[in-house]
Design a protein around this nucleic acid. Sequence first.
RNA 1: CGCGGGGUGGAGAAGUGGCAUCUCGCGAGGCCCAUAACCUCGAGAUCCCGGGUUCGAAUCCCGGCCCCGCAACCA
Length: 506
Amino acid sequence: MADENDKYYVTTPIYYVNDKPHIGHLYTTIAADVLASYHRLRGEEVLFLTGTDENSQKNTEAAEKQGYEDIQAFLDMMAETWKKAFAEMKITNDDFIRTTEGRHRKGVEKFWAMVKETGDIYEGEYVGLYCTGCEAFLNESDLEDGKCVMHKKAPQELKEKNYFFRLSAYRERLLAYIDENPDFIQPLSRRNEVRSYVDKFMEDISISRDVGAVKVGIPVPGDDTQVIYVWFDALINYLTGVGFGTDDAKFDKWWPADLHIVGKDIIKFHCALWPAMLMSAGLPLPKRVFAHGFFTIDGDKMSKSLGNVIDPLDVARKYGRDPLRYFLLREITFGEDGDFSLKRLEERYNGELANDLGNLLHRTLSMTEKYLSGEVSAVADGSVQESWDRYDAAMQSADFSDALETVWGILRSSNKLIDDKKPWVLAKEGGDSELSEVMYVLLERLRHIAWMLKPFMPGVTDRMLEQLGVTESDKRKEYEDRKLWGGMIEGTSIAKGEPLFPRLEE
RNA sequence: CGCGGGGUGGAGAAGUGGCAUCUCGCGAGGCCCAUAACCUCGAGAUCCCGGGUUCGAAUCCCGGCCCCGCAACCA
């Protein structure tokens, strides 16, 4: 039985496959990837799950628009597109769940039965206003001039037999849970938002649809005329992705999830409906839900009509995968809204990656070659413990900006150190011992920097470690040991290579 | 009273009770190891406005003003 702290289960939302992934989808996925990598480096056993939400009318509409007779063929094709995109971005998800898979369906059926057993599913006639944009029935408060305020579109009046989930029965328990677990919903502003929703607006919801109306979906067990509502179905992926309904041992090992990363738009589903569903089924709740913000593109909202939707693969091909990953997490405070612009990306690339980081590595290695025959000198005093403490704290709370700021603090002070000590003068004037001390400190700091940046820029940091001549034994070390000062070993040959980040010119 | 984000030096941001911070840009200087990279100093902010709480407010409270996102695509 593994210690609780030795496992880390992180998820992204599952994505609709009505189109290929855009930069926003990658943003979410990259954030999860960075955390997954970080926890793997710590030596924890990690399960990073992502996937696709396929039982949705939106997908059906997209299939029809593209002339697909066979919806499943369309879904298969699109799911493949998503997998390929993630693979090209070197996303390290351990599994990829599709809600049209058998394992998911089995788990959903089991889950439905558990909730039904509790008595939280009841049959009713729904007469309501359904907005296809929201994929949800609307309340009076969602309407303005008879139209959905979100989608500015008149909802359809639907009258049908539906199954309902007794969501309102969980109001008090949800409020208590939110109050007793201050870290459950992050950032704080979202927690307040959800709390207010649960307290004032949350009502029972319909969790099935007439089978004729939607064409896709998992049939309600025991009632072929109804299929399970897409959200009720989709949320369960977090369980079925770790074996719920198909592999009990696996499920017991991984659930509850340590973290669900979601966009701010779906926070209510994840922080109200989902925990209530789990309470009803008698399952533990996820430990944390973190909602990130949205970003505009050059100040405008992302939209196809404006033609500013960015294909992350294009950006990655032009600037590199790692710089894109770095930029997304450095530029925008995680949890806040932000803006994405290629101009800013180029500025950060040149200013931070090429000048601060790349050039520091390069000049340090050059001096090591020039003054010390390309070999690491004897261990000299130094410490980066405080930086590690701050870095770890930031990573644990998904504060990527602060983690990176910490690293850049070391970079700047190292560039400064070179200027203060002037190794080229020491070399000329025979200050050998001081020279080797300075050079050791620089190389060793760079080793730490490489390890800190590893989750963010996995490819480039490998090259960095290689150039530094970091040994295999360092790579095999336990996380805590790797953080200790003195990992660079005297006499090791460095292997200066081409600059990591060639400057972007004009 | 539909929901949410925001207003901090020229630009972009951080900071949520205690000396207003960082990056870019600008000006001056230094260095010559390095990717025309690096370092230092400087100029530049009524922290949107008006009240209030407090020994102390960018930060908390009340009241305003303004900007942005929320049709479809859409994290």
